[in-house]
């Protein structure tokens, strides 16, 4: 049984902002299907009344003081920019 369809995979690729050729999409869909098939094993586990863990730490309230620290210079901020203009990061037309 198929877990993920080509259409679903294509939707996921859009959400993830990945352009995939139709060959790539075919291949990745079948690989995803294999992996998700394996992953489905988690459904066998009885998790009735079990809380989800997003963290193995039992710490909380990690806060910092509201004290100003040096910012980067504009030059350093833009150092790795693929394109820049007027002190900002230049991006193509927003669609």
């Amino acid at each position: 049984m198929k877990i993920i369809s080509l259409e679903q995979a294509s939707h996921v690729a859009k959400l993830a902002e990945l352009e995939l050729s139709s060959d790539e999409l075919d291949k990745i869909t079948s690989q995803l299907d294999d992996i998700l098939g394996h992953v489905a094993k988690i459904n066998e586990a009885d998790t009735e009344g079990v809380r989800p863990t997003s963290h193995t730490l039992d710490t909380n309230n990690v806060l910092r003081e509201d004290t100003v620290k040096d910012s980067l210079s504009q030059e350093d901020a833009l150092k790795n920019a693929p394109q820049q203009s007027g002190g900002g990061f230049l991006v193509p037309k927003i669609d």
């Binding site: 996921v12 990745i28 992996i35 998700l36 988690i42 586990a45 998790t47 079990v50 809380r51 989800p52």
Partner: peptide
């Protein structure tokens, strides 16, 4: 792709949250 799918609307509970519960086990 796997991660985006597991977090996406309609699949979050069955994948991500379920996995977090099994993680607790």
């Amino acid at each position: 792709m796997i991660g985006t799918y597991c977090l996406s609307s309609g699949y979050y509970d069955a994948y991500y949250e379920k996995a977090q519960r099994v993680r607790t086990l």
